[in-house]
Design a binder for these strands. Sequence first.
DNA 1: GCAAGGTC
Length: 727
Amino acid sequence: QMPVTVLMVAEKPMLADSIARLLSDGRCSKRKGMNKICSVSEYQGDFMGQHAFFKVTSTCGHVMGVDFPAEFNNWHKTPPVSLYDAPIDKVECTPEMKMNRYLASEAKGVDYLVLWLDCDKEGENICFEVIDAVQGSMRKPRNVDFMSLVYRAHFSAITEFDIKAAMRNLGRPDMNVSLSVEARRELDLRVGCSFTRFQSMFFKGKYAELDGATVSYGPCQTPTLAFCVNRHDEIVNFRPDPYWIIQTTFEARDGSFVKGDWARGRVSDPVEAQMYLNRIQQVGGATVTDINTKRSERNPPHALNTVKLMRAASTQLGLAPATTMHVAESLYTQGYISYPRTETSCYPPNFDLRGTLSRQCNDQRWGNVASRVMQEGINRPRGGFDKGDHPPITPMRSDPGALHGDNARVYEYVVRHFIATLMKNCVYEVTTAKLRCGEEEFSFQGKQLIDPGFTVILNASGAEKDVWMPRVERGDQMRLRSADVIDRPTTPPCYLTESELISMMEHHGIGTDASIPVHINTICQRNYVTVEEQSRRLIPTQLGVCVIHGYRAVDPELVLPTIRADLERQLELIATGQADFMTVKSQAVDLFKRKFLYFLDHMPTFDARFAATFTVASMEDRRSSVCSKCRVNSKTPGRLYCQACSGASKRGADIRSAGVVTRGSRGGRGRGGTTRGAMSTGMRSTRGAGVRGALGGRGTRGTRGTRGGRGASSARGGASEGGDNAN
DNA sequence: GCAAGGTC
């Protein structure tokens, strides 16, 4: 009997390898695929009761991407609003990989297809990309529905147990889930590109400091920026609130001094504070009324996942998330650490904790701690979540001293974190003494470390330290050595740290573990924020602030962190089969199209924030060929500054330091003129036919009239919606 | 040239 051939496809080369090894009990042979990136592992076995020849390979993430047809990618010939109705092409993500051709060639003459793509929405979508790629070359018996030859493996961990169980219980790929991803991809493209193109063209040449910058919008990047600007606004709008405290020093029996914390904390009236001070000074001493010792413990951290690594590397190593992931990737490919992109924060049940730990026992830096943990026995960590993607990030082998720089530092963190997860709680005691001074109460505290536990290896900033306090007993009398009224204003919050921003993004479901560093990079590259070197705090530039304030004035929904969650909720209806793909998609496209048209109508409102911040590039300025900053006669036509100076502005220096503007009458007219100009550039089209004639095709007046006429109710609906939202 | 999502 001839064996059947089964093609199995995973989402990344490394996974194909693992799956083949696990399913074949290590008896598989491996060869390189024709695209040099993927490989094929082959083995013989059993499939549906038949003798079978298995070929396990993979894609490399998505096979296909979305884009507009070439003729829509000319910014000047395509009105941005037409991107809401434009056709969308699927193009190969990475043409060099020739992924479609590769998959088709491996599928030649194959009888069955088993899809091992990641068990998330994107993975379900890639399933159908693979199906499209192989459908033409698989063997198709007559009178058999092709999809009956296609199976989907559902697995939640890359372990022998899970993978073999998945193979025994194969299901089918879920078209609805895939369609929900398709809808999201389409929407992100239409919305992101339309707003970005329109804004960039609107502002082109308008303000000196912007200098032709791309003014982008995106459903992830913009809410991310909004988090930073929110904090900026809190800081700017902060009004210090004065308050008064009483600072006291008491003397213990042994002659040592200790500061007392006033039970009232603070008062808002200086006269009142003075009154209390007088009373306290009259009493002149205090009695210890209570001593209370409380035991506290801190748990070791959960197993390390991507988000935690990025946050720790930002705060403790001062590395940008993108840098951290780049370094982690390189450590992974060199075999130092496990796969670094994972959401899972607990070890799988059969994880070899002891083996992993034993490989660290000879290291000079932490070997003694690792050995001690080996001897005393590891503390199996509790808590954390298994997201079913990959095991947590752990060290795989020791470093013989070969690693340097950031590689060494990230590796060290991964090792220290791993060892910490296997150690005991940090235990300490806090002793609080209460004092009575007439009617007033004070207290002071001391802290004693009982067992440092995991904190000896993970030198986190919050490591518990001993805090000294004098020895006192209940009933002790303590002399008041000093008492003063101190006035203190409340202080504004600090700018967001990168680590806090990552947490907020994760909490609101903005981006994924893999895309969070990308979005943070984007808002830096677009000149919306700068990162303070030491603290890694994100400080919005004037441009960043203008963009967010502009949207808030027109349609605040566009920058809310919920905008993505709301969309995902709609898409979930597609995924669960409760709603039709086309219906939900066109509703969402329609909603954003209305928002976009509303935005166009209210461009003067949006622009007002920019006009109040930046210098209008006058016509003379634009015609002049002398750079207005360095006065060198080498300026690119149409730009205010020469190449050298505008290069500096691209790094953010200019926009940050941009002064407040000159709003002359000429500037006002100039702005109006530019507005119309940009609008008509955006709306006028000679190629209206394929693009829903109503929105293109006519002159400026006609366009506005036509749009108003055709979609008056919807456009107005958008308007009132935006208005309601503003309240 | 534009978004966000995979992965290398």
